[in-house]
Amino acid sequence: MRMRSTLAAALGALLLSVALPASPAAAADGEFVYTYVGLNGLNLRGTLPDPDSNVCIDIPETVGSNLPAFAPRNFTDSTATVFLDANCNGDVFYVMPPGKRLGDRLRFRSVVFS
Rank of each mutant, 00 (worst) to 15 (best):
M1T: 11
R2D: 10
M3W: 14
M3G: 06
M3S: 09
R4H: 06
R4W: 15
S5T: 12
S5K: 13
S5M: 11
A8I: 10
A9Y: 03
A10L: 15
G12Q: 02
G12M: 11
L14D: 04
L14N: 03
L15M: 08
L16E: 03
S17T: 08
S17R: 12
V18S: 08
A19T: 01
L20G: 01
L20M: 11
P21N: 04
A22G: 14
S23W: 14
A25D: 10
A26M: 09
A27E: 03
A27C: 04
A27T: 04
D29L: 05
G30K: 00
G30N: 00
G30E: 00
E31C: 07
F32L: 04
V33F: 11
V33W: 07
V33I: 14
Y34P: 01
T35S: 06
T35Q: 08
Y36D: 00
Y36G: 01
G38E: 14
L39G: 10
L39Q: 10
L39Y: 13
L39V: 11
N40A: 08
G41P: 04
N43C: 15
L44G: 06
L44A: 15
R45M: 15
R45F: 11
G46R: 00
G46H: 00
G46V: 03
G46D: 02
L48F: 07
L48V: 06
P49Y: 05
P51G: 03
D52K: 09
D52Q: 13
N54T: 12
N54R: 14
V55T: 11
C56I: 13
C56L: 09
I57Y: 07
D58Q: 03
I59P: 02
P60W: 07
P60G: 06
E61Y: 04
T62E: 09
V63Y: 09
G64L: 11
S65W: 09
S65H: 04
N66D: 10
P68A: 09
P68R: 06
A69V: 12
A69L: 10
F70P: 01
A71F: 14
A71C: 08
A71R: 04
A71I: 09
R73V: 05
R73A: 09
R73F: 03
F75D: 11
F75I: 09
F75A: 08
F75E: 11
T76N: 02
T76G: 01
T76W: 01
T76P: 01
D77A: 00
D77W: 00
D77L: 00
D77V: 01
S78M: 14
T79V: 12
T81P: 06
T81A: 12
L84G: 05
L84H: 10
D85L: 12
N87P: 06
N87C: 12
N87I: 13
N87L: 15
N89W: 15
N89T: 12
G90H: 13
V92F: 11
V92N: 14
Y94D: 06
Y94Q: 14
M96D: 02
M96K: 02
P97S: 10
P97H: 05
G99A: 05
K100D: 13
K100N: 13
L102D: 05
L102I: 07
G103M: 10
G103L: 14
D104L: 15
R105G: 15
L106C: 08
F108R: 01
R109W: 08
